[in-house]
Structure formats: structure tokens, C-alpha cells
């Protein structure tokens, strides 16, 4: 059966859009969680006791050192050997958060280290507590300093969601592959998938750029 090429977009736009929404939702949720865990991890890595520093150091090394797809397979397939079965969605979330936190720690750590030492000295001299100093003085400046790498990383996480089709999660890539099998027209389908990713990554880029412009007022 041959389907005319121009009817493909009409046939598949809906499911690809659904996949895109799922990818975007996963990216947003995992980014927020890794943002929080990454900040805590960076603070622990910089100011924590020896044991905390060591644990976080090795966590980052492992996340950074193992191929992304292997991490996903360990979570989704590997754990079944010990009777732990994750649904594709659960596995996807665990992996994206674990991966995002590993990289987040490093991004946030470099952001915190960008803030001049004089800032915490001035805060201490005013009697501000360490907590207030961190929340009101150091982190706002650190976040501003790391917006460019952070934006890039969120786009990377969005693209990482393509790997999830390998564990049967019905994202953009999954729908495009399914459509390719059914219609034997990979060109147009992958082009549609590409367009969906591009629209989303451009949106993330714009958002990052706008946040950057807001911090430019004082930097």
C-alpha cells in the first residue's frame, strides 16, 4: 500500500505532537527535579563533610563516565533481574533525573565558584547566616552566571528523550519509527520529528536567552 507523501503529515502530525508533549513534559519535570538536586549536590560537594563530598564526586564521575544509553538500559532492563520492574515512564524519569543531577552538580558547582569570595565575606561581615548568604547572595548570582550552560543542558536533556523509544516509551521518535514501519516513508516522518524537536529546542533557547537578558541589567 502506498500512501501519497502529502497525506503523511496529516496522518501523523497528531501522534508526533502527542509524543512531543510527552518529551517536553519529561524534560520540564526532570529539569526541575535535577535543578533542585543538582544545587543541593553542588553545595554538598563544595561545603559538605568529607563523606558527602566523596559520594557526590563519585556519583558525578559515574554518571559522566557511563554511556547514556547504558544507564537507561541498566535502570529499565538490568533491574528486572532482581525483580524490580519499572514502567517505561518511571524508568525514563529515574534516568533523566539521575543523569540531569550528575551534570547539574557540575554546572551549579562552577556557577557557585564563579561568585567572588568577597561576596560571602561581605555577607558574613554583616552577620548574615550561611543559609541566607547562600539563598540571597550566592545562588542568585550563581544561577545568572550559569544560564548559558544550563540552557544548553536542558536542550540536551530534551534530545536525550529520543533514547526512550528504546524502552518502549511513546515519544516523538517512537511515533516516527512506528510510522516508518507502517508507511515505509522514513524521509518525511523523520523530517516531521526533526521539526518537532527543533521547535521545542528553539523555545528553550529563547527562554534561556530572555532570562539572560534580565540578569544583564546588573552584570
Amino acid at each position: 500500500m502506498h500512501i501519497p507523501i502529502l497525506t503523511i503529515p496529516r496522518l501523523y502530525a497528531g501522534v508526533i505532537a502527542q509524543g512531543a508533549v510527552k518529551d517536553l513534559a519529561l524534560t520540564v519535570v526532570s529539569t526541575i527535579v535535577s535543578f533542585i538536586l543538582g544545587t543541593l549536590g553542588a553545595a554538598g560537594r563544595l561545603y559538605g563533610p568529607w563523606l558527602v563530598k566523596t559520594v557526590i564526586y563519585w556519583y558525578v564521575e559515574i554518571i559522566r563516565g557511563l554511556p547514556a544509553i547504558l544507564q537507561l538500559f541498566i535502570i529499565y532492563f538490568g533491574f528486572t533481574q532482581w525483580g524490580i520492574d519499572f514502567s517505561p515512564l518511571t524508568a525514563a524519569l529515574i534516568w533523566l533525573v539521575a543523569y540531569g543531577t550528575g551534570y547539574g552538580v557540575e554546572i551549579f558547582r562552577s556557577g557557585i565558584m564563579e561568585v567572588p569570595h568577597g561576596q560571602s565575606e561581605a555577607a558574613a561581615a554583616l552577620g548574615l547566616s550561611r543559609r541566607t548568604t547562600m539563598l540571597r547572595i550566592i545562588l542568585p548570582q550563581a544561577y545568572a552566571a550559569m544560564l548559558p550552560p544550563l540552557t544548553s543542558f536542558v536542550v540536551l536533556q530534551l534530545k536525550n528523550t529520543t533514547l526512550l523509544y528504546l524502552v518502549g516509551y511513546a515519544d516523538i521518535m517512537y511515533q516516527a519509527r512506528l510510522g516508518t514501519d507502517a508507511t515505509e516513508q522514513p524521509g518525511i516522518l523523520y523530517l516531521m520529528a526533526a521539526l518537532a524537536y527543533l521547535i521545542m529546542s528553539l523555545a528553550i533557547g529563547r527562554l534561556g536567552y530572555r532570562l539572560e537578558r534580565r540578569t544583564a541589567a546588573y552584570r
Partner: peptide
Amino acid sequence: IRTRVGMVFQTFNLFPH
């Protein structure tokens, strides 16, 4: 001590944000 002792630095160290 830090509440009752004020300090001014060579590099000002105002909070830029």
C-alpha cells in the same frame, strides 16, 4: 560580634544583583 562590628572592604563587595 558581626552584627555590632561593621566592615568596609577594599573592593567594596556590594551585592551586584
